[in-house]
């Protein structure tokens, strides 16, 4: 099979959310000496299409999450075949829904989209204490701490994350990005967060910008 055809098989299998077919297509590419980075790019392109279909309501969250899982599994296979110079992560993000808040669906979508963009995402889950974000960021040498809040009563804890980070003198080590229904650019500015993201696709753009600036 020609390289183009093999890569198309990777792309189509991921879009069909078929784990077995995707991994065997990836293996076939490697057996045919297609570079790991080329296969990774194909997987990333397919995930961008998954994201597009989600925005167009052709795909729903379970499909996006499953596709991201397949991509992660495939990338693990590919990393071993990469040259050291190629194996560079696009950034590391600590993500979680803030203390007192159990609404994690938006956060889950953002986490998937960031992974899709090649970032390493450490998901702390929901109802995450302020301190835990910062401990995880230090421990994992993260580039970004991403916090979401869906309620006006949990939003004030976003300010605490920023204040605690600043009191630790870590403003340059990791940036803080906030989001969620009641949060706005104005609120992010008011509490001194480094960035605000309106939705999942915006979160990817904003995270890439923050990392590029660092």
């Amino acid at each position: 099979m020609a390289e183009e055809e093999l890569l198309k098989s990777v792309y189509d299998s991921l879009l069909a959310i078929n784990s077995d077919k995707t991994t065997s297509a990836v293996k076939e590419c490697l057996n045919n000496n297609i570079s790991a980075s080329t296969v990774m790019k194909t997987l990333a392109d397919a995930m961008i299409e998954v994201g597009e279909r989600f925005n167009q309501r052709k795909f729903f969250l379970p499909q996006v999450v499953l596709a991201a899982g397949i991509m992660e599994k495939s990338n693990k296979m590919l990393i071993d075949a990469l040259d050291v110079s190629e194996a560079k992560c696009a950034g590391k993000v600590i993500i979680g829904t803030i203390e007192g808040d159990i609404h994690d669906l938006g956060k889950n979508i953002v986490a998937v989209m960031l992974k899709t963009a090649g970032m390493e995402v450490i998901d702390l889950g929901k109802d995450v204490p302020v301190k835990k974000y910062l401990e995880a960021a230090k421990e994992n040498k993260a580039d970004i701490v991403a916090c979401s809040a869906l309620m006006s009563t949990t939003m004030p804890y976003l300010r605490d994350v920023v204040e605690l980070r600043n009191s630790m003198g870590c403003e340059e080590q990791f940036k803080i990005m906030v989001g969620g229904a009641p949060v706005s650019q104005g609120y992010a500015d008011q509490i001194g967060a480094d960035a605000y993201a309106e939705d999942a696709m915006d979160a990817v753009r904003v995270a890439q910008k923050l990392i590029a600036k660092a």
Partner: peptide
Amino acid sequence: ATLETINGSEIKSNTTAEMIA
């Protein structure tokens, strides 16, 4: 409705402020 503030302060979950609110 949801009160935006209580006594002019933000209402924080899991605190006495949210109970008063």
